[in-house]
Design a protein around this nucleic acid. Structure first.
Length: 923
RNA sequence: GCCUCCGUAGCUCAGGGGUAGAGCGCUCCCUUGGUAAGGGCGAGGUCAUGAGUUCAAAUCUCAUCGGAGGCUCCA
């Protein structure tokens, strides 16, 4: 008699037991190697969704595997709990952000527990608690003291809908990355972190095992370029205008200059005649949103300031314009325009009738470039011309000093004091202030213009709870007098910290979330740091993942890790390099998308009215079952809006308006049907409530059990890619776990042990171990599970055939269950107990791969004729070349095709790692 | 426009110079006192397309087409 597999009781039972026995408490133990596995902490938005499961359960499986391999594993979890949704809930539903956030955290904790993950809950950290944000404030102060945090005036991104400024990284295509609302540029005084100081170090990924895509995105975002700075002066007044260029070799081709409309000098140099036009243009630009300004292919607009500059390289007098294609935020906000060799300048010159002068002449052109004939800028290689002493220098494709012409010009600029070599970055300093309530307070005060840091002893500056949320969206801190009014002259900062600051160091807080004397305990950090494996979404490429790297380096430089380094040395661990980067290995999971489903196939009858049908009857039928003689519209419902159907009739979209009293017949839904019950085609796309394609993990766990859901998520997708949800495929992992259950409960076979049968299944087992190891190592969870399914099939077949003795059966089961444990922790624990082994399976050693046991003994020697396989001969694995060639030449296939003639060649390919040996005979 | 990654069975994916693979799904058969099932047999692929290198290309190179993601007036 066997019991059937009922996941529910098992899962709840073991989750409780694990907690009671503190199975997943991770404690510093210098006698064991450590492994810090971290998965991005969730925002407590209310409900755990399938994406969380997809991100976390495979990471959990890998952490469990490391643990069984003998590592002391830390796998913590917490909440990134500050942020706008809480504040929006406060405004729209009158729930205080504390209450909303904590209620959500409570709920999500429970849901997280249902995963059966090995989170160490005693290390939980929640970023919105005063115990946590005290240290966010403390870090801010340290940064301020070391000049990494500063208050400055800059053109920043202002989101009208969120009523706050945003960092550059949070703005995509001129829109706020969260809500998609447009942002405007505004000059504001704000707090910044000097991330640009770390630009070069952030470009260095040496020793970091991160996805190529992330490294490229960060590299692009930092946007390092090499070139030169040169100073032009205005003809009148001699004001210096600094410019940055990557093409100093084209300095002699500058025929005008362009300043960004926001440039300081504009006001000073604009002549009386041009003032009205310039001011008008500036107003126009200011009114534009960032989106409008970034539109592609827009015309190059701009106005002449009336002023002229002197080109330092040739003393030429050139006009100064302003135009919005020059950004105040990049370089110096001013450019020398070289229309012959820069497409933007070229377009501007043509639009405003400015001169063009060729200064790079390509060597291999039949027709030399000429100012008049050019239809576009030439930015290729060539020889410098019209450039005085520099003429003849060769400019190639290379950038910076590597380019001979650029190198020569830079030397000359430096020798003559007209300019110097320069490096420029696209990266801006990190704008850290937010005009919001629900964030960590910035621990600063103001007495007029004087900035006064809040003394350390007074940290944390706590968020007041008795605040009113106004529908205007303004932060309640700005009108909460007890908060901002320190005394008659001193006013407290009412801006709060960007939540990305809180998440830049949470990996440190997990080490000692209760530590009251420091942000983290040095003894813990000395053992656990750095994070060994970090998993999460790629959408954080240039935000969280860049910020946390910067943060770590900044902490290192201001000495925050000094005590940790000392503790490391005491324990004999070398601290050099440990604090350079927060996470050694990074892997991104893909996204689970909503599944595709077909729309109903309908027959529509009614009358035609213009291009559409006014339907009186809609009938859902089986796919393509169109009755003979049916003359209405038929096909799949591709789309439906209200009562208008878009029916795909053999590839052509037909519009059908369903009339109010129309008869709708849907056989699958009994009773009277209505138009809302017709289902339309659903594309593969992101899950969202509005599309009605979300999958609720709680329901899945209810129906299948957590182990099946975990295994389905790991098995059905390439984890790093993601893919469409297909609940049908859940049956695969379900059947697998059912089978393993059956095999285990059936007990040891009674058949006598047969050496060769046992040897064969053992070989399969060890081959499986190798593949599972590799799958887990490489985050290829799907292959790791597929291989275990194969082994299960092989085992089942072997048990049926017989020859597996009781002893071997137990040995196999012991290893099979241990292999299963990281993936399906509950069923593995249950079977482990049922077979009488000691609690817990998760504390057992991982099955040891044995290459000798995995090796095949007999292999097929493949005889190929001209590269085409023709015959196989069974031979020993380690067959020697001569013997193999001999056998191959003697084969039937070889004799047939050689017909007595000697072969041209016979190439022997030894069999290696699993593949058969081969001999290719060339005739 | 530029950069990166990817096109292998119906689906999800391994593999990767040397006989085209897995799981699921599917067909058919068996079982029907393991039953919201179980067992067995099987079908199914010009490895996106074209060219090159090679004794041998799904695999390497180049081009083209298709897909995904990122950047984009960056001087």
């Amino acid at each position: 008699m066997t019991e059937t597999y009922h996941p529910h009781a098992i899962e709840v039972k073991w989750q409780r037991k694990w907690e009671d026995s503190q199975l997943y408490r991770s404690k510093v133990d210098w006698s064991k190697p450590k492994h810090y596995a971290l998965t991005m902490l969730p925002y407590p938005s209310g409900d755990l969704h399938i994406g969380h499961w997809f991100a976390m359960t495979p990471s959990d499986a890998r952490a469990r595997w490391m643990r069984m391999k003998g590592y002391n594993v830390l796998f913590p979890m917490g909440f990134d709990a500050f942020g706008l949704p809480a504040e929006q809930a406060a405004i729209s539903r009158n729930i205080h952000p504390w209450k909303w956030t904590y209620a959500n955290i409570e709920r999500m904790r429970e849901q997280l527990r249902s995963m059966g993950a090995m989170f160490d809950w005693e290390r939980e950290a929640i970023s919105c608690t005063p115990e946590y944000y005290k240290w966010s404030e403390w870090f801010f102060k340290r940064f301020y003291e070391h000049g990494i945090a500063y208050r400055g005036s800059a053109l920043v991104n202002w989101s009208e809908s969120l009523q706050t400024v945003l960092a550059n990284e949070q703005v995509i295509d001129g829109k706020d990355e969260r809500t998609g609302q447009p942002v405007a540029h505004k000059m504001m005084e704000q707090w910044f972190f000097r991330i640009t100081q770390y630009a070069d170090e952030l470009l260095d990924f040496a020793g970091m095992d991160w996805p190529q895509a992330i490294k490229i995105m960060q590299t692009n975002w930092i946007g390092r370029s090499e070139g030169a700075r040169a100073v032009f002066h205005t003809e009148v007044g001699g004001h210096p205008i600094e410019i940055y260029t990557t093409r100093p070799d084209t300095l002699w081709g500058a025929t005008f200059m362009v300043l960004a409309p926001e440039h300081d000098l504009v006001e000073k140099i604009t002549t009386a005649e041009q003032r009205a036009a310039v001011e008008h243009y500036i107003d126009e630009i200011a009114a534009e949103t960032e989106i409008e300004r970034m539109m592609e292919h827009r015309e190059k607009t701009g106005v002449f300031t009336g002023a002229y500059a002197i080109n330092p390289v040739n003393d030429e007098r050139i006009p100064i314009w302003i135009a919005d294609y020059v950004m105040i935020t990049y370089g110096t906000g001013a450019i020398m325009a070289v229309p012959a060799h820069d497409q933007r300048d070229f377009e501007f010159a043509r639009a405003h009738d400015l001169p063009i002068r060729v200064v790079i002449q390509p060597a291999d052109m039949t027709e030399p470039l000429s100012d008049e004939a050019m239809s576009e800028a030439y930015d290729g290689p060539g020889l410098m011309v019209n450039s005085d002493a520099m003429n003849g220098s060769e400019s190639d494709w290379r950038k910076g000093r590597k380019n001979p012409a650029i190198n020569r010009v830079i030397d000359w600029l430096e020798a003559t004091g007209k300019g110097e070599e320069a490096v420029n970055y696209r990266l801006r300093d990190w704008l850290i202030s937010r005009q919001r309530y629900w964030g960590g307070p910035i621990p600063m005060m103001y007495d007029g213009d004087e900035i006064i840091p809040v003394p350390d002893a007074e940290l944390p500056v706590e968020l007041p709870e008795d605040v009113d949320f106004m529908p205007t969206g303004r932060s309640p801190l700005t009108y909460h007098e007890p908060f901002f009014k320190v005394d008659d002259s001193i006013r407290r900062e009412t801006d709060t910290l960007d939540t990305f600051m809180c998440s830049s160091w949470y990996q440190l807080r997990y080490l000692s979330p209760d530590c009251a004397t420091a942000p983290f305990d040095a003894e813990e950090a000395a053992y656990w740091l750095p994070v060994d494996v970090y998993t999460g979404g790629a959408e954080h490429a240039v935000m969280h993942l860049l910020y946390t790297r910067f943060f770590t380096k900044a902490l290192r430089d201001i000495g925050v890790f000094d005590a940790t380094a000392a503790a490391m040395r005491r324990h004999g661990r070398e601290p050099a390099g440990v604090f350079d980067e927060p996470m050694t290995v990074l892997r991104n999971q893909g996204q689970v998308l909503g599944g595709e489903h077909q729309g109903d196939f309908v027959l529509c009858s009614g009358r035609m009215d213009g291009g559409k049908m006014l339907a009186e009857r809609i009938e859902v039928v089986d796919w393509n079952q169109v009755p003979a003689g049916f003359d209405g519209i038929f096909g799949e419902i591709a789309h439906r809006t209200e009562n208008v159907l878009h029916v795909d009739m053999a590839g052509i979209t037909q519009f059908v308006e369903v009339l109010p009293g129309a008869v709708i017949h849907i056989p699958a839904i009994p009773g009277a049907n209505n138009v809302n019950q017709l289902s339309h085609h659903l594309e593969i796309q992101r899950m969202s409530k509005s599309k009605g394609n979300v999958v609720n993990p709680d329901e899945l766990v209810e129906q299948y059990g957590a182990d099946v859901v975990r295994c389905y998520l790991m098995f059905n997708f390439d984890w790093q890619k993601g893919g469409p949800w297909n609940e049908n495929n859940i049956k695969g992992p379900q059947g697998w776990l059912h089978d393993v259950w059956e095999i285990a409960l059936a007990g040891a076979p009674e058949s006598a042990s047969d050496l060769s049968a046992e040897r064969n299944i053992e070989r399969k087992l060890h081959q499986t171990i190798a593949v599972v190891n590799r799958g887990l190592e490489e985050f290829s969870f799907n292959t790791a599970i597929a291989e275990q399914m194969k082994f299960k099939n092989a085992l089942k077949a072997a048990l049926r055939t017989g020859g597996i003795g009781a002893e071997m059966w137990r040995a196999l089961m012991s290893q099979l269950i241990r292999l299963l444990a990281p993936f399906a922790p509950h069923i593995a624990e249950e079977l482990w107990a049922l077979l009488g082994w000691e609690y817990s399976v998760h504390e057992q050693p991982w099955p040891q791969y044995d290459a000798d046991k995995a090796r095949e003994e007999l292999v097929e020697l493949v005889v190929m004729i001209n590269g085409k396989p023709r015959e196989t001969i069974a031979v020993a694995v380690d067959i020697a070349q001569e013997r193999a060639q001999e056998l191959a030449l003697a084969s039937e296939a070889a004799r047939r095709s050689l017909a007595g003639k000697p072969p041209k060649r016979a190439i022997f390919i030894p069999g290696r790692n699993g593949s058969d040996p081969k001999v290719n005979i060339v005739v």
